[in-house]
């Protein structure tokens, strides 16, 4: 589903070059739940950003669902992200001025879908994460776990084939973290969604299908 071939990422400033990723080759199979671990600054998030077309590799090739996306730019790239990928972030990134259902609808705004259909799809996604009773609430009225569930609903509302989660349980206590992971496991097992999750938590990583470790930009396990 996701193929990385000798992917490198080098950040260059006027005075210094920093290698964030060094020749990473990786295959993530369809329906696999992969976790990525490593110390802070080892390149986990950079790797996830490259898989999610949020950043471009300096070298190497990235294929997603059989398509070489290394050279994707502009509208095709935006369309690809919108239709194929779902993102979950550690700090939720909910829009404070929008209600829960409006937050979940955001990815659908960039598709040609009627308002009524958007509402129905967002309601279904909120049902799936058990938040159908919080549709009209605003993010400030929710707990951390609820916020992350809204973020998951937003990630799955467009029915993407891949979910990329950057430390989705990082800001949550263990009970809420387990709840979030259970939802991800459910999506992976029942909906056959491919999930790549960056985590610092060995316990969370142990619940996934496969774990890779990064150290100083290189894959060590």
């Amino acid at each position: 589903m996701i193929e990385l071939d000798k992917v490198s990422k080098v950040y260059t400033t006027k005075t210094i070059e920093t290698t964030a990723l060094n020749d990473i080759s990786l295959n993530v199979a369809k329906g696999e739940f992969l976790s990525i671990m490593g110390p802070s600054g080892c390149g986990k998030s950079t790797l996830l950003n490259i898989m999610g077309l949020l950043d471009a590799p300096s070298n190497g090739q990235v294929k997603i669902d059989g398509q070489n996306i290394s050279n994707y730019l502009g509208k095709p790239m935006a369309k690809f992200r919108n239709e194929k990928l779902g993102f979950i972030f550690q700090s939720f990134h909910l829009i404070a001025d929008l209600s829960v259902i409006d937050n979940v609808e955001v990815p659908l705004l960039y598709r040609k879908i009627s308002g009524k259909e958007r509402k129905e799809m967002a309601s279904r996604a909120l049902d799936a994460v058990g938040l159908s009773n919080r549709k009209k609430h605003f993010p400030s009225q929710l707990s951390g776990g609820q916020k992350q569930r809204v973020a998951i609903a937003r990630a799955i509302v467009g029915e993407p084939k891949i979910i990329l989660a950057d430390e989705p349980t990082g800001n949550l206590d263990s009970v809420m973290g387990d709840e979030v992971l259970d939802i991800l496991k459910y999506l992976n097992e029942k909906e056959d969604t491919t999930i790549v999750m960056v985590t610092h938590d060995e316990r969370m990583a142990s619940k996934t299908d496969r774990l890779i470790r990064l150290y100083d930009g290189s894959q060590v396990a």
């Binding site: 999610g52 949020l54 935006a78 992200r81 993102f87 955001v106 705004l109 960039y110 598709r111």
Partner: peptide, 12 residues
């Protein structure tokens, strides 16, 4: 961050 988020979610 909202701008980045919208781009991540498919906004051109």
């Amino acid at each position: 961050s909202e701008i980045g988020l919208r781009q991540a979610l498919g906004a051109h």
